[in-house]
Amino acid sequence: MTEEPRLSAQDLIERLAPALSRRTRIGAVATLLAGVAGAVFMVTLWWSEPGPLPDRTQVAFAVLTVFCVAWAGYGGWLLTRRVVLFATDQVIAAWIGLAASLATTAVVTMTAVQRGTGVGLPLAVGGLFVAVALALAVRAHARQAALLRRLRELTDREEQ
């Protein structure tokens, strides 16, 4: 009688979920397409503006284009993964969302200050977006830590 080779915890996980779920793939495609479409839209709008634009407008277009490209890159990266991610994708998405929320709040608040329209509303709305993004980042890190802790537990048991 031959003894079957013993699989490690990592091997078992990879056999159970060798690729991204359908839901994750659909989300990744949507993120990739939205990022590319947003970047194309922002660059087209930026280039089609007549005359020299004010510096703050140039900065706003650049920041928004960078975030669109970041989302497109994230979607593309996610589609190329064929391994279990242990919530790394959620952590990356949360950080992109937090950075975008902070930068957008800063740009909108600067614009409000320069126009003299008051900063209450931009800070309130931006603060809400930043708070939600921060909560999602904390949740993503906690989920990732729990999954990695569980993997270590399974690996430690296997080695004993």
Results as ranks from 00 to 15, higher is better:
residue 2 T to A: 12
residue 3 E to Y: 13
residue 4 E to G: 10
residue 4 E to Y: 09
residue 6 R to C: 03
residue 7 L to N: 09
residue 12 L to F: 00
residue 12 L to G: 08
residue 13 I to T: 04
residue 13 I to M: 11
residue 14 E to I: 09
residue 17 A to I: 14
residue 18 P to S: 07
residue 18 P to F: 05
residue 21 S to F: 05
residue 23 R to C: 04
residue 24 T to L: 03
residue 24 T to E: 12
residue 29 V to W: 04
residue 29 V to Q: 00
residue 30 A to Y: 09
residue 31 T to Q: 10
residue 32 L to E: 11
residue 32 L to I: 11
residue 34 A to K: 01
residue 35 G to F: 05
residue 36 V to N: 07
residue 37 A to K: 13
residue 37 A to Y: 10
residue 40 V to R: 06
residue 41 F to V: 15
residue 43 V to Q: 07
residue 43 V to A: 11
residue 44 T to I: 01
residue 44 T to E: 10
residue 45 L to R: 08
residue 46 W to Q: 15
residue 47 W to C: 03
residue 51 G to E: 08
residue 51 G to M: 05
residue 56 R to S: 12
residue 59 V to G: 00
residue 59 V to Y: 05
residue 60 A to W: 12
residue 67 F to Q: 04
residue 69 V to A: 06
residue 70 A to G: 12
residue 74 Y to P: 08
residue 76 G to L: 13
residue 78 L to V: 07
residue 80 T to C: 10
residue 82 R to V: 10
residue 82 R to A: 04
residue 83 V to G: 06
residue 84 V to P: 12
residue 90 Q to P: 15
residue 91 V to N: 02
residue 91 V to H: 03
residue 92 I to G: 04
residue 93 A to S: 13
residue 94 A to Q: 04
residue 95 W to S: 15
residue 97 G to A: 04
residue 99 A to T: 13
residue 100 A to Q: 14
residue 102 L to W: 08
residue 103 A to D: 13
residue 106 A to Y: 15
residue 107 V to D: 05
residue 110 M to P: 14
residue 113 V to R: 11
residue 113 V to W: 06
residue 115 R to N: 07
residue 118 G to W: 07
residue 119 V to N: 01
residue 121 L to R: 05
residue 123 L to R: 02
residue 125 V to Y: 01
residue 127 G to C: 09
residue 129 F to V: 05
residue 132 V to K: 06
residue 134 L to K: 04
residue 135 A to K: 02
residue 136 L to T: 08
residue 140 A to I: 06
residue 142 A to Q: 05
residue 144 Q to R: 09
residue 148 L to R: 13
residue 149 R to S: 05
residue 151 L to T: 06
residue 151 L to N: 02
residue 152 R to E: 04
residue 153 E to V: 10
residue 153 E to W: 12
residue 157 R to F: 01
residue 157 R to I: 01
